[in-house]
């Protein structure tokens, strides 16, 4: 390859890289900037890219006037409990499928995965009636029970993939030392799988944190509604409060982005595990 051609080529690659970066980060950076601008600046014919002067009035609005912290708390409780339960029961199932004698384990794994592909709109109606009969509407329990079932197939699948890479010799050693299957799981396999548990937990957490449809259908009061429902309902009578919405978006998205950036390598590995297994 001649020198000038490879220079052109690397220029093109850089231009493309820049384009992908602008695509991925640009819209949210604009949302970020919007959240610090006065409404007067937002309704100018020419937008300002850097807030001048910056203001925190939108952040004050969402927490004081719109009680945004209550939605945040609800989301935190629901997503936290969901993550915990998903990891607990998902690890048990993945352990059984990977380490113990189960006839047709790949069939079972496939079944678990195919259940996760059911369209959620097909279960929201019947579940609503069931939840109503059991007094689970507008409760944390109702949402957690639902989200666990939505999240656990992926958790089981990813943990199964990880457990299966751990060497079998460990099991034999544990067996000889007199460990039962539960001891093997709790004392040996789980401590060895911490990185995988953290990433898998993060995936379950994000899914529950972001879920909208069931939260919309099952909750009706601010004491139980989660963040997505809160943001969706952010409208004033005569105009759309874009600044407030931007502030709320920043509050719910920035922690997620930080977590994701921190664990990015593991996330990409976990999620691509299924798709690229040869």
């Amino acid at each position: 390859m001649t020198g000038s051609r490879s220079t052109l080529r690397s220029l093109l690659v850089y231009a493309g890289g820049l384009l992908i970066f602008a695509w991925s980060a640009g819209p949210f950076l604009w949302q970020f900037s919007t959240s610090f601008q006065y409404d007067a600046a937002l309704t100018q014919p020419t937008p300002t890219f850097l807030p001048s002067p910056p203001t925190l009035e939108h952040y004050a609005n969402i927490f004081v006037a719109k009680s945004f912290h209550r939605y945040l708390w609800n989301s935190l409780v629901v997503a936290g409990l969901t993550t915990f339960v998903c990891l607990a029961i998902g690890a048990m199932a993945a352990f059984a499928l990977s380490r113990l004698e189960v006839k047709g384990r790949f069939g079972i794994l496939g079944l678990i995965l195919s259940v996760s592909m059911f369209p959620q709109i097909a279960i929201v109606g019947p579940l609503y009636l069931i939840a109503s009969d059991w007094g689970l509407l507008d409760t944390y329990r109702g949402l957690v029970i639902t989200y666990v079932a939505l999240g656990v197939p992926l958790v089981t699948w990813v943990l199964f993939g990880y457990f299966d890479t751990l060497p079998r010799e460990i099991d034999e050693a544990a067996w000889i030392d007199g460990c039962g299957p539960i001891g093997l799981l709790v004392r040996i396999i789980l401590p060895m799988s911490l990185p995988s548990l953290v990433t898998t937990g993060l995936l379950a957490f994000i899914a529950a944190w972001n879920e909208f449809m069931f939260a919309l259908a099952f909750t009706s009061s601010i004491s139980r509604q989660t963040v997505p429902v809160g943001i969706a309902n952010f409208t004033n009578l005569y105009y759309v409060p874009w600044g407030d919405i931007a502030a709320a978006s920043v509050v719910v998205t920035v922690p997620l982005i930080l977590l994701v950036l921190f664990f990015q390598r593991h996330i990409i590995e976990s999620l691509t595990l299924g798709a690229v297994k040869e």
Partner: peptide, 24 residues
């Protein structure tokens, strides 16, 4: 860095994406 930035749209709640595009 670009690969990290690419996870931003994925991690963001869809409701936030909708509102963000509503504004854009």
């Amino acid at each position: 860095m670009i690969r990290a930035a690419m996870l931003v749209p994925w991690a963001m709640p869809t409701v936030v994406t909708s509102k963000m595009f509503g504004w854009l």
